[in-house]
Design a binder for these strands. Structure first.
Lengths: 144, 144
DNA sequence: CCAATTTTAATTGTGCACAATTATTTTACA
DNA sequence: TGTAAAATAATTGTGCACAATTAAAATTGG
């Protein structure tokens, strides 16, 4: 019998565990800002882009409307974003940042440093691993 | 303003995305066995150990009783495991594999090969990355 | 021995993920 | 132009994750 079936020999398990572990590092920091990790991802997009569509957001974060719609409604309720149907295409919903959302960027500034500190990895190691993971993502996406 | 706040410069995002991507590769394969990915993790433990406690399971998978209790109840309902209070320590719940659970191992045998195929990575690359992630997990755990 | 503390699961409540379906709008094209 | 097909969100339903609380059993210290 192959050892491939053993928990400790799998790639996916440490990936899954580390992903949860690191989002756990974010949690207390993000809690102070009143957002969750997936909501923080949306904010990062909007801090760069000011506004985007649900579809684009889904493509960037690889999340579907089943996840995004309720998440964005919660963010709208907390005043960080606005949602409105596009005038050019009524199927599309435009998500845009509010003043409150823009202000949050200042408060979030120190988060990356805090996380880096928890990771106990050199900048080089972080960048190398990040780019490796991104490369695997791109490669596996092609085959879908 | 630091670029650390940009989505594409973060380590956690590709980690989070790749973890979901790969569990997505497992989904159709595991669906045929009637289990989810977290349930498959439990089965992998039981294929090795035959029986264990909820506490031990939680330590191995880094999941708490809030996640495990309902998950194990669903697995009990589908006949893969049994749950019973320990006689020595009534606080503890023993989770053990059933005949049906043991039979599932045969059906799961080809899964690792399928996943490897989807990953498009060499054995060396998989092992190296897996061990790297495990090392980061251990290191970050120490600091909790 | 007994009360205080600790350990272990279960429960409760919130928020993702994601498959499948539905509803609406837009596009293509005969 | 009018209708079939495609695109876009929303909805519905299931199953994790995880914090916080509760309940019961075991351990410890006096």
């Amino acid at each position: 019998m192959s050892d491939d079936i053993r928990l400790n020999n799998q790639l996916c398990f440490p990936l899954y565990a580390l992903s949860r572990q690191i989002t756990g590092f974010y949690r207390p920091l993000l809690e102070q800002l009143g957002v969750t990790y997936p909501q923080y991802l949306v904010m990062m997009v909007l801090w760069e882009m000011e506004s985007t569509s649900v579809k684009q957001l889904g493509q960037m974060l690889w999340l579907d409307s089943g996840t995004l719609t309720p998440l964005l409604k919660r963010m709208e309720a907390s005043g960080l974003i606005a949602r409105e149907r596009s005038l050019e295409d009524e199927r599309s919903v435009i998500v845009s940042i509010t003043d409150k959302g823009r202000l949050l960027e200042r408060e979030a500034e120190k988060i990356p440093t805090h996380i880096k500190c928890r990771l106990k990895m050199s900048d080089y190691e972080i960048i190398t691993l990040r780019d490796h993971l991104k490369k695997i993502l791109e490669t596996t996406l092609e085959s879908e």
